[in-house]
Design a protein around this nucleic acid. Structure first.
Length: 418
RNA sequence: GUGGGUAUAGCUCAGUUGGCUAGAGCGCCAGGUUGUGGCCCUGGAGGUCAAGAGUUCGAGACUCUUUACUCACCCCA
Protein backbone atom coordinates (compact mmCIF):
# COMPACT_ATOMS: atom_id res chain seq x y z
CA UNK A 1 0.00 0.00 0.00
CA UNK A 2 1.20 3.48 -0.86
CA UNK A 3 0.42 5.98 1.83
CA UNK A 4 0.21 9.73 1.96
CA UNK A 5 3.48 11.70 1.87
CA UNK A 6 4.83 13.05 5.13
CA UNK A 7 3.40 16.33 6.27
CA UNK A 8 0.33 16.21 4.02
CA UNK A 9 -3.29 15.54 4.85
CA UNK A 10 -6.37 14.51 2.94
CA UNK A 11 -9.34 16.74 3.52
CA UNK A 12 -11.97 14.01 3.56
CA UNK A 13 -15.64 14.34 2.60
CA UNK A 14 -16.75 14.41 6.22
CA UNK A 15 -14.49 17.38 6.97
CA UNK A 16 -14.36 19.45 3.81
CA UNK A 17 -17.33 21.53 4.95
CA UNK A 18 -15.14 23.07 7.64
CA UNK A 19 -12.80 24.37 4.99
CA UNK A 20 -15.68 25.70 2.97
CA UNK A 21 -16.89 27.45 6.11
CA UNK A 22 -13.70 29.47 6.60
CA UNK A 23 -13.29 30.04 2.87
CA UNK A 24 -16.81 31.40 2.63
CA UNK A 25 -16.15 33.80 5.49
CA UNK A 26 -12.93 34.92 3.82
CA UNK A 27 -14.80 35.66 0.59
CA UNK A 28 -17.55 37.47 2.44
CA UNK A 29 -15.26 39.72 4.48
CA UNK A 30 -12.93 40.54 1.57
CA UNK A 31 -15.96 41.53 -0.48
CA UNK A 32 -17.00 43.95 2.27
CA UNK A 33 -13.56 45.53 1.99
CA UNK A 34 -13.67 45.65 -1.82
CA UNK A 35 -10.94 43.09 -2.46
CA UNK A 36 -10.84 40.83 -5.52
CA UNK A 37 -9.44 37.33 -5.66
CA UNK A 38 -6.15 36.58 -7.40
CA UNK A 39 -4.96 33.07 -8.26
CA UNK A 40 -1.30 32.68 -9.11
CA UNK A 41 0.55 29.48 -10.07
CA UNK A 42 1.50 26.88 -7.47
CA UNK A 43 5.10 27.08 -8.73
CA UNK A 44 7.34 29.97 -9.73
CA UNK A 45 10.95 30.50 -10.70
CA UNK A 46 13.09 29.78 -7.66
CA UNK A 47 14.72 33.17 -7.98
CA UNK A 48 11.46 34.94 -7.19
CA UNK A 49 11.40 33.53 -3.67
CA UNK A 50 15.12 33.98 -3.13
CA UNK A 51 14.79 37.65 -3.93
CA UNK A 52 11.53 38.35 -2.11
CA UNK A 53 11.38 36.10 0.93
CA UNK A 54 15.11 36.67 1.44
CA UNK A 55 18.28 34.63 1.23
CA UNK A 56 18.96 34.77 4.96
CA UNK A 57 15.62 33.21 5.90
CA UNK A 58 15.15 29.60 6.89
CA UNK A 59 12.39 29.32 4.33
CA UNK A 60 14.78 29.92 1.44
CA UNK A 61 17.76 28.22 3.02
CA UNK A 62 16.29 24.89 3.91
CA UNK A 63 12.53 24.66 3.48
CA UNK A 64 11.75 25.11 -0.20
CA UNK A 65 10.49 22.42 -2.53
CA UNK A 66 12.85 23.15 -5.40
CA UNK A 67 13.44 21.03 -8.52
CA UNK A 68 14.62 21.31 -12.09
CA UNK A 69 11.92 20.94 -14.72
CA UNK A 70 12.51 19.16 -18.02
CA UNK A 71 13.77 22.36 -19.56
CA UNK A 72 16.44 22.66 -16.88
CA UNK A 73 14.76 25.60 -15.13
CA UNK A 74 14.87 25.83 -11.36
CA UNK A 75 11.29 25.77 -10.12
CA UNK A 76 9.96 26.08 -6.56
CA UNK A 77 6.55 25.31 -5.09
CA UNK A 78 5.31 28.48 -3.42
CA UNK A 79 6.33 28.61 0.26
CA UNK A 80 4.05 31.60 0.90
CA UNK A 81 1.61 33.75 -1.00
CA UNK A 82 3.02 37.24 -1.29
CA UNK A 83 5.85 36.68 -3.76
CA UNK A 84 3.67 35.33 -6.55
CA UNK A 85 1.11 38.09 -6.11
CA UNK A 86 3.87 40.72 -6.19
CA UNK A 87 5.20 39.18 -9.38
CA UNK A 88 1.75 39.21 -10.95
CA UNK A 89 1.25 42.82 -9.91
CA UNK A 90 4.46 43.90 -11.61
CA UNK A 91 3.73 41.84 -14.70
CA UNK A 92 0.06 42.66 -15.24
CA UNK A 93 -1.43 45.09 -12.76
CA UNK A 94 0.91 48.01 -12.20
CA UNK A 95 -0.98 50.20 -14.63
CA UNK A 96 -4.32 49.65 -12.91
CA UNK A 97 -5.94 52.34 -10.79
CA UNK A 98 -4.28 52.21 -7.39
CA UNK A 99 -4.59 50.84 -4.88
CA UNK A 100 -4.90 47.28 -6.16
CA UNK A 101 -6.56 45.27 -3.41
CA UNK A 102 -6.48 41.48 -3.62
CA UNK A 103 -6.86 38.31 -1.60
CA UNK A 104 -5.86 34.71 -2.23
CA UNK A 105 -6.61 31.29 -0.80
CA UNK A 106 -3.83 28.93 -1.77
CA UNK A 107 -1.87 25.86 -0.79
CA UNK A 108 1.76 26.55 0.19
CA UNK A 109 4.70 24.21 0.64
CA UNK A 110 7.57 24.12 3.09
CA UNK A 111 9.88 21.19 3.72
CA UNK A 112 9.84 21.05 7.53
CA UNK A 113 9.32 18.50 10.29
CA UNK A 114 5.56 18.44 10.68
CA UNK A 115 3.88 19.02 14.03
CA UNK A 116 0.60 20.33 15.39
CA UNK A 117 -0.53 23.25 13.26
CA UNK A 118 2.31 22.84 10.81
CA UNK A 119 2.29 20.77 7.64
CA UNK A 120 4.46 20.51 4.55
CA UNK A 121 1.51 21.38 2.40
CA UNK A 122 -0.63 23.91 4.21
CA UNK A 123 -3.13 26.55 3.16
CA UNK A 124 -3.07 30.27 3.44
CA UNK A 125 -5.63 32.98 3.18
CA UNK A 126 -3.83 36.22 2.48
CA UNK A 127 -4.46 39.82 1.57
CA UNK A 128 -2.26 42.27 -0.34
CA UNK A 129 -2.84 45.95 -1.04
CA UNK A 130 -0.51 47.66 -3.51
CA UNK A 131 -0.06 51.36 -4.08
CA UNK A 132 -1.23 52.96 -0.83
CA UNK A 133 1.53 54.24 1.43
CA UNK A 134 -0.47 55.65 4.34
CA UNK A 135 -1.04 54.11 7.73
CA UNK A 136 -4.77 54.01 6.93
CA UNK A 137 -4.07 51.04 4.72
CA UNK A 138 -2.10 49.28 7.46
CA UNK A 139 -5.09 49.82 9.71
CA UNK A 140 -7.52 48.59 7.10
CA UNK A 141 -5.59 45.37 6.58
CA UNK A 142 -5.44 44.80 10.33
CA UNK A 143 -9.17 45.47 10.65
CA UNK A 144 -9.94 43.06 7.84
CA UNK A 145 -7.93 40.31 9.53
CA UNK A 146 -9.66 41.01 12.82
CA UNK A 147 -13.14 41.02 11.27
CA UNK A 148 -12.35 37.74 9.56
CA UNK A 149 -11.05 36.02 12.69
CA UNK A 150 -14.01 37.19 14.71
CA UNK A 151 -16.51 36.19 12.05
CA UNK A 152 -14.93 32.75 12.04
CA UNK A 153 -15.67 32.49 15.75
CA UNK A 154 -12.52 33.51 17.61
CA UNK A 155 -13.46 36.00 20.27
CA UNK A 156 -10.33 36.31 22.39
CA UNK A 157 -7.58 37.66 20.21
CA UNK A 158 -4.36 39.43 21.02
CA UNK A 159 -3.02 41.88 18.47
CA UNK A 160 0.64 42.78 18.65
CA UNK A 161 2.19 45.49 16.52
CA UNK A 162 5.62 46.97 16.02
CA UNK A 163 7.49 49.11 13.55
CA UNK A 164 10.83 47.95 12.28
CA UNK A 165 11.28 51.07 10.20
CA UNK A 166 12.56 51.35 6.68
CA UNK A 167 15.49 52.69 4.70
CA UNK A 168 17.80 54.79 6.86
CA UNK A 169 16.04 53.89 10.07
CA UNK A 170 16.79 50.29 9.39
CA UNK A 171 20.46 50.90 8.60
CA UNK A 172 21.02 53.07 11.65
CA UNK A 173 19.24 50.72 13.93
CA UNK A 174 21.00 47.65 12.57
CA UNK A 175 24.32 49.31 13.33
CA UNK A 176 23.37 50.19 16.91
CA UNK A 177 21.86 46.79 17.53
CA UNK A 178 24.89 45.02 16.09
CA UNK A 179 27.23 46.94 18.37
CA UNK A 180 25.11 46.11 21.37
CA UNK A 181 24.91 42.44 20.47
CA UNK A 182 28.63 42.13 19.87
CA UNK A 183 29.29 43.69 23.25
CA UNK A 184 27.06 41.06 24.87
CA UNK A 185 27.79 38.19 22.55
CA UNK A 186 29.19 36.02 25.35
CA UNK A 187 25.72 35.86 26.87
CA UNK A 188 23.94 34.91 23.63
CA UNK A 189 23.29 31.42 22.32
CA UNK A 190 25.40 30.12 19.44
CA UNK A 191 22.63 30.59 16.94
CA UNK A 192 22.11 34.23 17.87
CA UNK A 193 25.83 34.91 17.70
CA UNK A 194 25.79 33.60 14.15
CA UNK A 195 22.82 35.83 13.36
CA UNK A 196 24.55 39.03 14.46
CA UNK A 197 26.30 39.46 11.15
CA UNK A 198 23.75 38.02 8.78
CA UNK A 199 20.49 39.35 10.18
CA UNK A 200 20.71 40.98 13.62
CA UNK A 201 16.98 41.74 13.75
CA UNK A 202 16.27 38.04 14.05
CA UNK A 203 18.07 37.90 17.40
CA UNK A 204 15.20 39.92 18.88
CA UNK A 205 12.94 36.99 18.17
CA UNK A 206 14.96 34.42 20.13
CA UNK A 207 12.89 32.47 22.65
CA UNK A 208 15.72 31.45 24.97
CA UNK A 209 15.52 33.07 28.39
CA UNK A 210 19.25 33.75 28.42
CA UNK A 211 19.00 35.72 25.20
CA UNK A 212 15.80 37.42 26.31
CA UNK A 213 17.50 38.86 29.35
CA UNK A 214 20.19 40.38 27.14
CA UNK A 215 17.46 41.82 24.94
CA UNK A 216 15.74 43.59 27.81
CA UNK A 217 18.43 46.26 27.62
CA UNK A 218 18.77 46.13 23.85
CA UNK A 219 18.00 49.18 21.73
CA UNK A 220 14.46 49.10 20.36
CA UNK A 221 13.51 49.80 16.78
CA UNK A 222 10.79 52.21 17.81
CA UNK A 223 13.37 54.42 19.52
CA UNK A 224 15.33 54.79 16.30
CA UNK A 225 12.56 55.52 13.84
CA UNK A 226 13.03 58.37 11.39
CA UNK A 227 10.55 61.22 11.61
CA UNK A 228 8.54 59.77 8.73
CA UNK A 229 8.48 56.24 10.13
CA UNK A 230 7.57 57.54 13.53
CA UNK A 231 4.64 59.57 12.20
CA UNK A 232 3.47 56.54 10.25
CA UNK A 233 3.49 54.37 13.36
CA UNK A 234 1.78 57.05 15.48
CA UNK A 235 -0.90 57.49 12.81
CA UNK A 236 -1.55 53.74 12.78
CA UNK A 237 -1.86 53.68 16.56
CA UNK A 238 -4.26 56.58 16.60
CA UNK A 239 -6.52 54.98 13.99
CA UNK A 240 -6.57 51.73 15.96
CA UNK A 241 -7.33 53.67 19.15
CA UNK A 242 -10.07 55.72 17.49
CA UNK A 243 -11.72 52.55 16.25
CA UNK A 244 -11.41 50.80 19.59
CA UNK A 245 -9.11 48.09 18.34
CA UNK A 246 -7.02 46.81 21.20
CA UNK A 247 -3.37 46.05 20.62
CA UNK A 248 -0.08 45.98 22.40
CA UNK A 249 3.23 47.23 21.07
CA UNK A 250 5.77 44.44 21.17
CA UNK A 251 9.20 45.99 20.48
CA UNK A 252 10.66 42.54 19.85
CA UNK A 253 8.14 41.54 17.23
CA UNK A 254 10.16 40.83 14.10
CA UNK A 255 8.76 38.86 11.23
CA UNK A 256 10.79 36.08 9.67
CA UNK A 257 10.60 37.28 6.12
CA UNK A 258 13.12 39.82 4.90
CA UNK A 259 10.79 41.99 2.87
CA UNK A 260 8.98 43.70 5.75
CA UNK A 261 9.38 47.44 6.44
CA UNK A 262 7.69 49.76 8.93
CA UNK A 263 4.58 48.11 10.36
CA UNK A 264 4.56 44.45 11.37
CA UNK A 265 1.76 42.73 13.26
CA UNK A 266 0.53 39.37 14.52
CA UNK A 267 -2.75 38.01 15.81
CA UNK A 268 -2.40 35.52 18.65
CA UNK A 269 -5.52 33.68 19.81
CA UNK A 270 -5.71 33.36 23.59
CA UNK A 271 -7.23 29.91 23.60
CA UNK A 272 -4.24 28.05 22.25
CA UNK A 273 -1.51 26.73 24.47
CA UNK A 274 0.63 25.36 21.68
CA UNK A 275 3.72 27.17 20.47
CA UNK A 276 2.20 27.47 17.02
CA UNK A 277 0.26 30.37 18.38
CA UNK A 278 0.44 32.98 15.66
CA UNK A 279 -2.54 32.39 13.41
CA UNK A 280 -2.07 35.48 11.30
CA UNK A 281 0.96 37.63 10.59
CA UNK A 282 1.66 40.47 8.27
CA UNK A 283 2.97 43.94 7.71
CA UNK A 284 4.14 46.51 5.24
CA UNK A 285 6.70 45.81 2.50
CA UNK A 286 7.34 49.03 0.65
CA UNK A 287 10.55 47.92 -1.04
CA UNK A 288 9.48 44.54 -2.36
CA UNK A 289 8.00 45.58 -5.68
CA UNK A 290 10.97 47.75 -6.58
CA UNK A 291 13.48 45.10 -5.55
CA UNK A 292 11.74 42.65 -7.89
CA UNK A 293 12.12 45.07 -10.78
CA UNK A 294 8.81 46.95 -10.62
CA UNK A 295 8.10 50.63 -10.18
CA UNK A 296 8.52 51.71 -6.55
CA UNK A 297 5.16 50.76 -5.02
CA UNK A 298 4.20 50.68 -1.34
CA UNK A 299 2.37 47.56 -0.17
CA UNK A 300 0.90 45.96 2.91
CA UNK A 301 -0.71 42.61 3.62
CA UNK A 302 -1.03 39.57 5.82
CA UNK A 303 -0.98 35.79 5.63
CA UNK A 304 -3.18 33.51 7.66
CA UNK A 305 -2.78 29.74 8.12
CA UNK A 306 -6.01 27.84 7.59
CA UNK A 307 -4.86 24.67 9.37
CA UNK A 308 -3.92 26.75 12.38
CA UNK A 309 -7.18 28.61 12.25
CA UNK A 310 -9.17 25.37 12.23
CA UNK A 311 -7.07 24.09 15.13
CA UNK A 312 -7.80 27.26 17.09
CA UNK A 313 -11.51 27.02 16.31
CA UNK A 314 -11.55 23.44 17.51
CA UNK A 315 -9.75 24.30 20.75
CA UNK A 316 -12.12 27.21 21.30
CA UNK A 317 -15.08 24.83 20.98
CA UNK A 318 -16.50 26.59 17.93
CA UNK A 319 -19.09 24.32 16.37
CA UNK A 320 -19.03 24.47 12.58
CA UNK A 321 -22.24 23.28 11.01
CA UNK A 322 -22.31 21.26 7.83
CA UNK A 323 -24.68 23.24 5.63
CA UNK A 324 -24.42 20.80 2.73
CA UNK A 325 -26.59 18.02 4.13
CA UNK A 326 -28.90 16.08 1.86
CA UNK A 327 -32.44 17.46 1.56
CA UNK A 328 -34.33 14.34 0.56
CA UNK A 329 -33.61 10.64 0.48
CA UNK A 330 -35.94 8.59 -1.70
CA UNK A 331 -36.45 5.09 -0.33
CA UNK A 332 -38.25 2.42 -2.31
CA UNK A 333 -39.66 -1.07 -1.87
CA UNK A 334 -38.43 -4.05 -3.82
CA UNK A 335 -38.78 -3.64 -7.58
CA UNK A 336 -39.65 0.06 -7.58
CA UNK A 337 -36.23 1.55 -8.23
CA UNK A 338 -37.39 3.08 -11.52
CA UNK A 339 -39.96 5.19 -9.67
CA UNK A 340 -37.22 6.34 -7.30
CA UNK A 341 -35.00 7.39 -10.21
CA UNK A 342 -37.86 9.42 -11.66
CA UNK A 343 -38.76 11.19 -8.41
CA UNK A 344 -35.13 11.86 -7.49
CA UNK A 345 -34.60 13.44 -10.90
CA UNK A 346 -37.61 15.71 -10.49
CA UNK A 347 -36.44 16.86 -7.07
CA UNK A 348 -32.97 17.65 -8.36
CA UNK A 349 -34.35 19.64 -11.29
CA UNK A 350 -36.35 21.64 -8.75
CA UNK A 351 -33.15 22.56 -6.91
CA UNK A 352 -33.66 20.12 -4.04
CA UNK A 353 -30.73 17.83 -3.28
CA UNK A 354 -31.88 14.22 -3.48
CA UNK A 355 -30.43 10.75 -3.50
CA UNK A 356 -31.53 7.10 -3.50
CA UNK A 357 -29.93 3.73 -2.90
CA UNK A 358 -28.07 2.08 -5.76
CA UNK A 359 -26.61 -0.84 -3.84
CA UNK A 360 -29.70 -3.01 -3.37
CA UNK A 361 -30.24 -2.32 0.31
CA UNK A 362 -33.35 -3.45 2.12
CA UNK A 363 -35.86 -0.73 2.94
CA UNK A 364 -34.74 -0.72 6.54
CA UNK A 365 -31.12 -0.36 5.51
CA UNK A 366 -32.09 2.47 3.17
CA UNK A 367 -33.59 4.38 6.07
CA UNK A 368 -30.51 3.73 8.12
CA UNK A 369 -28.32 4.96 5.31
CA UNK A 370 -30.49 8.06 4.87
CA UNK A 371 -29.97 8.79 8.54
CA UNK A 372 -26.21 8.47 8.20
CA UNK A 373 -26.23 10.84 5.26
CA UNK A 374 -27.89 13.38 7.48
CA UNK A 375 -30.90 13.55 5.14
CA UNK A 376 -33.49 16.06 6.29
CA UNK A 377 -36.46 14.25 4.74
CA UNK A 378 -37.19 10.77 3.52
CA UNK A 379 -39.85 9.83 0.99
CA UNK A 380 -40.85 6.17 0.67
CA UNK A 381 -42.21 4.66 -2.52
CA UNK A 382 -44.16 1.40 -2.35
CA UNK A 383 -47.03 -0.35 -4.07
CA UNK A 384 -49.65 1.38 -1.92
CA UNK A 385 -48.31 4.82 -2.75
CA UNK A 386 -48.37 4.12 -6.46
CA UNK A 387 -51.97 2.97 -6.18
CA UNK A 388 -53.28 5.74 -3.95
CA UNK A 389 -50.92 8.53 -5.10
CA UNK A 390 -50.35 9.35 -1.45
CA UNK A 391 -46.69 9.49 -0.38
CA UNK A 392 -45.23 9.65 3.15
CA UNK A 393 -42.67 12.41 3.68
CA UNK A 394 -40.82 11.75 6.90
CA UNK A 395 -39.03 14.52 8.77
CA UNK A 396 -35.88 12.72 9.91
CA UNK A 397 -35.28 15.07 12.78
CA UNK A 398 -38.55 14.71 14.65
CA UNK A 399 -39.96 11.58 12.99
CA UNK A 400 -43.20 13.25 11.85
CA UNK A 401 -44.72 11.90 8.66
CA UNK A 402 -46.78 13.96 6.24
CA UNK A 403 -48.88 12.22 3.58
CA UNK A 404 -48.77 14.14 0.34
CA UNK A 405 -50.14 13.65 -3.15
CA UNK A 406 -47.54 12.94 -5.82
CA UNK A 407 -47.97 16.24 -7.65
CA UNK A 408 -47.59 18.25 -4.44
CA UNK A 409 -44.35 16.66 -3.22
CA UNK A 410 -41.94 19.28 -4.56
CA UNK A 411 -44.00 22.19 -3.34
CA UNK A 412 -44.29 20.62 0.12
CA UNK A 413 -40.58 19.87 0.42
CA UNK A 414 -39.76 23.42 -0.63
CA UNK A 415 -42.01 24.80 2.07
CA UNK A 416 -40.63 22.43 4.68
CA UNK A 417 -37.01 23.29 3.88
CA UNK A 418 -37.67 26.94 4.65
C1' G B 1 18.59 19.51 11.03
C1' U B 2 18.13 18.40 17.06
C1' G B 3 15.43 16.00 21.11
C1' G B 4 11.20 13.16 23.42
C1' G B 5 6.92 9.75 22.77
C1' U B 6 4.16 6.01 20.16
C1' A B 7 3.28 1.66 16.78
C1' U B 8 -2.17 -4.56 18.35
C1' A B 9 -9.04 -4.73 13.56
C1' G B 10 -11.41 0.86 9.37
C1' C B 11 -11.22 4.21 14.30
C1' U B 12 -10.11 4.61 19.86
C1' C B 13 -7.51 1.44 22.72
C1' A B 14 -7.04 -3.28 26.51
C1' G B 15 -3.69 -7.39 26.59
C1' U B 16 -0.85 -9.06 34.13
C1' U B 17 6.13 -11.30 36.36
C1' G B 18 6.91 -13.84 28.78
C1' G B 19 2.35 -19.17 28.70
C1' C B 20 -3.82 -22.16 25.46
C1' U B 21 -6.97 -20.69 19.01
C1' A B 22 -5.69 -12.55 19.45
C1' G B 23 -9.62 -8.99 22.83
C1' A B 24 -13.32 -4.79 23.86
C1' G B 25 -16.02 -0.45 22.43
C1' C B 26 -17.26 2.27 18.17
C1' G B 27 -17.84 1.80 12.85
C1' C B 28 -19.21 -1.57 8.63
C1' C B 29 -22.61 -5.77 6.75
C1' A B 30 -26.88 -8.89 7.89
C1' G B 31 -31.12 -10.49 10.91
C1' G B 32 -34.91 -9.50 15.01
C1' U B 33 -43.37 -11.85 11.51
C1' U B 34 -42.52 -9.69 3.15
C1' G B 35 -43.00 -1.16 4.57
C1' U B 36 -39.82 3.14 8.15
C1' G B 37 -33.69 5.48 10.70
C1' G B 38 -31.73 6.92 15.75
C1' C B 39 -32.36 3.01 21.27
C1' C B 40 -31.99 -2.31 22.30
C1' C B 41 -30.80 -7.71 21.14
C1' U B 42 -28.30 -11.51 17.96
C1' G B 43 -24.92 -12.93 14.24
C1' G B 44 -20.97 -11.90 10.51
C1' A B 45 -16.74 -9.90 7.93
C1' G B 46 -12.21 -7.63 9.19
C1' G B 47 -5.38 -8.57 12.28
C1' U B 48 1.87 -10.88 8.78
C1' C B 49 0.39 -7.62 16.78
C1' A B 50 4.88 -1.74 11.77
C1' A B 51 9.28 -4.58 9.41
C1' G B 52 13.77 -7.45 10.26
C1' A B 53 17.03 -9.90 13.50
C1' G B 54 18.15 -11.71 18.57
C1' U B 55 17.17 -14.01 23.72
C1' U B 56 13.86 -18.24 25.15
C1' C B 57 11.01 -24.70 25.47
C1' G B 58 7.69 -20.56 24.29
C1' A B 59 7.58 -13.36 22.35
C1' G B 60 2.06 -8.94 20.99
C1' A B 61 5.13 -8.37 25.60
C1' C B 62 12.23 -8.58 26.67
C1' U B 63 16.94 -6.68 23.54
C1' C B 64 18.95 -4.49 19.02
C1' U B 65 18.27 -2.38 14.08
C1' U B 66 15.17 -0.12 10.47
C1' U B 67 10.75 2.41 9.07
C1' A B 68 6.46 5.20 9.90
C1' C B 69 3.62 8.37 12.79
C1' U B 70 3.45 12.06 16.60
C1' C B 71 4.91 16.10 19.90
C1' A B 72 8.52 19.73 20.95
C1' C B 73 12.97 22.84 19.50
C1' C B 74 14.72 25.93 15.35
C1' C B 75 11.66 28.77 12.07
C1' C B 76 7.06 30.09 10.35
C1' A B 77 1.04 30.52 9.03
Amino acid sequence: MINIPKGTKDILPDTSFKWQYVENIARKITRLYNLKEIRTPIFEHTELFERSVGETTDIVNKEMYTFLDKGGRSITLKPEGTAGVARAFIESLSNCALPVKMYYITPAFRYERPQAGRLRQFHQFGVEVFGAAGAETDAEVIMLAKDFLEAAGINSLKLEINSIGSGETRNNYNKVLKEYLIKNSDKLCALCRARIEKNPLRVLDCKLDSCKSVLKEAPKTIDYLSQEDKEHFERLRSILDENKIKYSVNPYLVRGLDYYTKTVFEFIPQTVTSAQETVCGGGRYDNLIESLGGKPTPAVGFGLGLERLLLVLENAGVNIEDTGKLDVFVAFADGLIDEAIKLTGELRKAGISADYDQTGRSLKAQLKYADKQGAKYCITIGGDELNTGNFPIKNMQNGNILHIQRQNIIETIRKELK
